[in-house]
């Protein structure tokens, strides 16, 4: 599937997606033409889905980030669907993940400050359907966040 050249390109590319093509080609030790062809191939195969800007919510004034671990009432057949559909309507929910384990769904919620969070929690989160239990983890710091794959 992937050869060493693909791996080299992906490693350098994910380490700094903003690199100019010429610079990336040099770091990956390929010619610019070869890089362009390989990049197109990786995109066409769906291995590379795109490049996105990472937004720093704290810089936008959202100082609080809370991880809400939700257990759902699974006696309700549509618990997951209903809950996720409703959670999508809350703009401050920036991530929705489902799990196999002790937690069913996790929401990442951002807020401007603690009183804003309290307001969101009461008026937008606790009103979501089929919640059996919620645990909250408050983010203190991000130690590592590159989300790179060990290719």
């Amino acid at each position: 599937m992937l050869d060493d050249v693909d791996r080299r390109i992906l490693r350098q590319w994910q380490a700094d997606p903003s690199l100019a093509p010429a610079e990336l080609a040099e770091r990956a030790r390929v010619s610019p033409g070869q890089l362009a062809r390989r990049q197109a191939k990786l995109r066409d195969a769906g291995l590379v889905k795109g490049v996105q800007a990472a937004i720093d919510w704290a810089a936008l004034g959202y100082a609080v980030e809370v991880s809400l671990r939700v257990t759902l009432d699974k006696t309700q057949g549509r618990a997951f669907d209903d809950f996720i559909e409703a959670a999508r309507e809350v703009p401050e929910v920036i991530e929705i993940q489902t799990f196999l384990g002790r937690v069913d769904v996790r929401l990442s919620v951002i807020a401007r400050d603690m009183s804003h969070y309290q307001h969101l929690y009461r008026s937008c989160i606790l009103t979501l359907p089929h919640i059996a239990d919620i645990e909250a983890l408050m983010h203190v710091a991000r130690i590592k966040s590159d989300e790179a794959l060990p290719l």
Partner: peptide, 17 residues
Amino acid sequence: AGVIRGQRLVLDAEKLG
């Protein structure tokens, strides 16, 4: 202003093994 903190290459982890 740091609002855009950088760029992220979005990969399909499953397809990459």
